[in-house]
Design a protein around this nucleic acid. Structure first.
Length: 435
DNA sequence: TCTGGGGTCCTAGGACCC
DNA sequence: TCTGGGGTCCTAGGACCC
């Protein structure tokens, strides 16, 4: 099995260029909501030194000087273009995991690895032709390595494709990659690793997985194994979201409750629309409000409430009623609010699939005391003794996979309900927890 | 003056069940 | 008959990603 990571180059900028080819070769940036900061840059804008996330006001003069083309973001356009790119990818393999609006992992098994780079070059050309979007492709034995290969493809490969499988070349390549540039290692974890003397991807590859686990949890340990070509992260092709969020910072500061209620209602309606679009129901609704944390001179306030429904629903007016009630609980006069948001949680499918979630057979009940479960307990003990307590295990590699496909299906909300004590089943309008 | 909007997974600890 | 306190659920918070 080989993984490919396909990443659209400067995606939002590329989308704008598709509709205005005159932008090609010029510095272009795309801004966030309210035109607050830079969220996409063309290569030309990057070489001018405009960082990702830069507050616009700090760079206005500089961008004007260099005639940078500045766009407000157009998410409907980007979403549509993303759909076209993903659809095009699925022409080349059925195993597609849409990872973000501009990235997808592809899986290739049972095909000739030596021919894959050429196939990827053809795929890249086809996508360029069909959608106008340039992409880069990284190929490797694991997702983590494919991400690194993609970086190299972007930076150095003139044909936009790089395969990282050569065991002789690998140490040299990994030795040149800073540890923070690995997928899953941020600044904070990077510093922790540097304190341990691990500065490059090569050092991390050679590190003791148990030691990394102590410092970075099982997530870090997986990265070590992935760097060594042992795949711990599977292709996840199921696309339904587990949470649906809608939030905005306001264009101006808001002090009155009515405006907050209005904002929450409109965010709720948007979230509910997304919910129905993916065919889900929600059993929880989380609402938060906060003041502007960038204004230390202002009194700060931030709070959130979780509303629960006594069954999963998709009804906008019930959601809005709950959100309004939450705002009334959270609102404190005398503050200038800057942002609010709504998240639908505890999602379940609304379709017939839901029935298949009721798959807990009596013999699999965790509490049954039959012979089979005693045998399982005994086996577990043996394994624990052999591996040492607290050591996770799986298959042949000694690492717990992120998703155990043999595990019982994640219980549905209804099933969990059976195990709930009365205190957990309070009706939503009786239970608002305010931190 | 102006600072995004989404998501995911893991851990720790308490309640509860048998 | 003998045998291990084990197991699941929940929340909150902290990491990480694009």
């Amino acid at each position: 099995m080989l993984f490919a990571l396909v990443d659209c180059n400067n995606f939002y900028v590329s989308c704008e260029r598709v509709f205005d080819p005159a932008l090609v070769g010029r510095p272009v940036v795309v801004l966030s909501n309210n035109d607050g900061c830079v969220i996409a840059r063309s290569d030309e804008a990057k070489s001018l030194g405009i960082p990702m996330g830069a507050p616009v006001h700090e760079y206005t003069a500089m961008m004007r000087r260099h005639q940078v083309q500045v766009f407000s973001s157009n998410y409907p356009l980007y979403g549509d273009m993303s759909g076209r790119v993903m659809e095009s990818l699925s022409q080349f393999t059925p195993d597609v995991e849409i990872y973000s609006i501009d990235e997808a992992f592809l899986g290739f098994s049972g095909c000739d690895a030596a021919r894959l780079p050429e196939q990827m070059r053809q795929m890249r050309q086809a996508i360029r032709q069909w959608t106008g979007i340039p992409v880069s492709v990284g190929l490797a034995a694991t997702k983590t390595l494919a991400k690194l290969a993609n970086r190299i493809a972007k930076k150095y490969a003139s044909d936009g494709v790089y395969m990282m499988t050569d065991p002789v070349l690998m140490p040299r390549v990994l030795g040149d990659i800073a540890v923070e540039d690995i997928w899953g290692i941020s600044k904070r974890w990077g510093q922790r690793l540097r304190d341990m003397g691990i500065t490059t991807a090569l050092r991390l590859q050679q590190a003791d997985p148990r030691q990394i686990r102590k410092a970075l949890s099982v997530v870090g340990e997986r990265i070590v194994h992935e760097l060594n070509g042992r795949s711990c992260l599977d292709l996840e092709t199921v696309q339904a979201k587990q949470n649906i969020m809608s939030s905005r910072s306001f264009g101006r500061l808001i002090s009155d409750r009515a405006s907050l209620e209005e904002a929450a209602a409109s965010y709720t309606a948007r979230a509910a629309e997304k919910l129905r679009k993916q065919g889900s129901l929600a059993a929880g609704l989380y609402v938060f409000i906060r003041t502007n944390r960038f204004r230390p001179q202002d009194p700060q306030y931030s709070n959130a409430a979780l509303m629960r429904f006594d069954e999963p629903i998709a009804d906008t007016s019930t959601f809005i009623a709950a959100a309004t009630k939450a705002i009334r609980q959270l609102y404190r006069p005398g503050f200038r609010y800057h942002k609010a948001g709504v998240m639908l949680t505890d999602l379940v499918s609304d379709g017939s699939e839901q029935k298949s979630l009721w798959r807990l057979e009596p013999s699999d009940s965790p509490h049954s005391q039959n012979a089979a479960s005693r045998r399982r307990m005994a086996m577990l003990d043996q394994v624990n003794a052999a591996m040492g307590r607290g050591t996770l295990f799986h298959a042949s590699e000694g690492v717990m996979p992120s998703r155990n496909t043999n595990a019982p299906t994640k219980p549905s909300w209804q099933m969990r309900q059976q195990f709930r004590s009365p205190s957990y089943t309070t009706r939503w309008n009786d239970l608002v927890r305010v931190r």
